[in-house]
């Protein structure tokens, strides 16, 4: 069994209300099952319902044991952690891993300090669960039970990792929050700060990084990709914010021969109607032009990745 269930796919901030019923209003949280292993990606507000679900199901068979991978420590990706019920249950074992940007506080403090009296009635020290924290980098990890994980730095205002899980010949990749790498040095010779060699090296470095991202998602059976904006929105004031457009994600995934693409990290202002229209629009545009299946991520939906027989 290799499955992926979306518990939260909203970007930036939870957005409850009648306009977000279909696609969901919780911020990022993804449940991955590889056989008996439970892997959770991100602890956005969606992790609350995942926790409750685990207590109703898995917990009957014994304490919860899970690997949690945080893509980055922006608030929308960690804010649900204090409401993840298993942390209050004796016997729970959580191994939390993720990147931290150059600063003095370790991951434990960055995430765990949400559990301090200032913000929350329970302190981290009072939790019943056994929790370990580990800062990780760009690398490949053997997670055991035939599960391999490769990580890749993405382009976001703080260090952010993409995750590629390989299990029984199939692959699942997360690529959020990510903006295509771009040359941040002036390329216009009229610009007073223009320098030819910087301009050229910047171009090359950005191109190389984008190629590495393509290789990272190459041939994925299921890819969850940041698509906070449309291309038009992206160029009108969102450059440098660390997110991708639908157009970029679709083109890149197609180029990388991804099999199934989930458009993820919905803008908090995007309503169900708008997301529906965008989904229909892009699916119609792509019809007959790619064998890749493309759809909007929907909170609560389960995606099965069949293992290779």
């Amino acid at each position: 069994m290799f499955t992926v269930k979306i518990w939260g796919d909203r970007g930036s901030m939870p957005t409850p209300g009648p306009d977000t019923v279909e696609f969901g209003g919780n911020t990022s949280c993804i449940e991955v099952r590889c056989g008996k292993r439970l892997i959770i990606i991100d602890a956005g507000s969606g992790i609350r319902q995942l926790g409750d679900s685990l207590m109703r199901t898995d917990f009957r068979a014994g304490p919860i044991k899970a690997d949690i991978f945080i893509t980055h420590t922006h608030w929308d990706h960690i804010m649900g952690f204090p409401m993840f019920t298993p942390i209050y249950v004796p016997g729970t074992e959580l191994r939390i891993r993720g990147p931290i940007t150059y600063e003095e506080d370790p991951l434990e403090k960055v995430i765990g300090s949400q559990l301090s009296y200032r913000y929350w009635p329970v302190r981290q020290e009072e939790l019943a669960a056994k929790i370990t924290y580990e800062q990780i980098k760009e690398s490949t990890f053997d997670l055991g039970d035939g599960i391999w994980l490769t990580t890749k730095y993405l382009n976001h205002p703080i260090l952010c990792l993409g995750y590629r899980f390989e299990y029984r010949g199939r692959s699942f990749v997360t690529l959020y929050d990510n903006e295509p790498f771009r040359n941040v040095f002036p390329t216009d010779p009229e610009d007073p700060q223009y320098d030819e060699s910087y301009a050229r090296e910047g171009e090359e470095a950005a191109r190389e990084q984008n190629e590495k991202i393509l290789a990272f998602m190459s041939g994925a059976d299921l890819l969850v990709h940041d698509t906070q904006y449309t291309a038009k929105e992206y160029v009108s004031g969102k450059v440098g914010w660390g997110h991708s457009s639908f157009e970029h994600a679709i083109n890149a995934a197609h180029k990388a021969q991804v099999k199934r693409l989930l458009l993820f990290h919905h803008d908090p202002n995007r309503t169900d109607t708008e997301l529906q229209e965008l989904e229909i629009f892009y699916q119609a545009k792509l019809r007959g032009r790619t064998s890749m299946s493309v759809e909007m991520s929907r909170e609560g939906r389960l995606y099965t990745i069949d293992p290779v027989e």
Binding site: T101, K137, E138, H156, Y198, G202, A205
Partner: peptide
């Protein structure tokens, strides 16, 4: 080892594009 980048980076231009202005600024 902090970033664990596979290849040695000997240019700041590259570092700024790979890790972002904020990270390099902090460094």
């Amino acid at each position: 080892a902090y970033y664990g980048l596979g290849t040695q980076v000997t240019s700041l231009v590259r570092a700024i594009i790979m890790l972002g202005v904020n990270t390099v600024k902090n460094l």
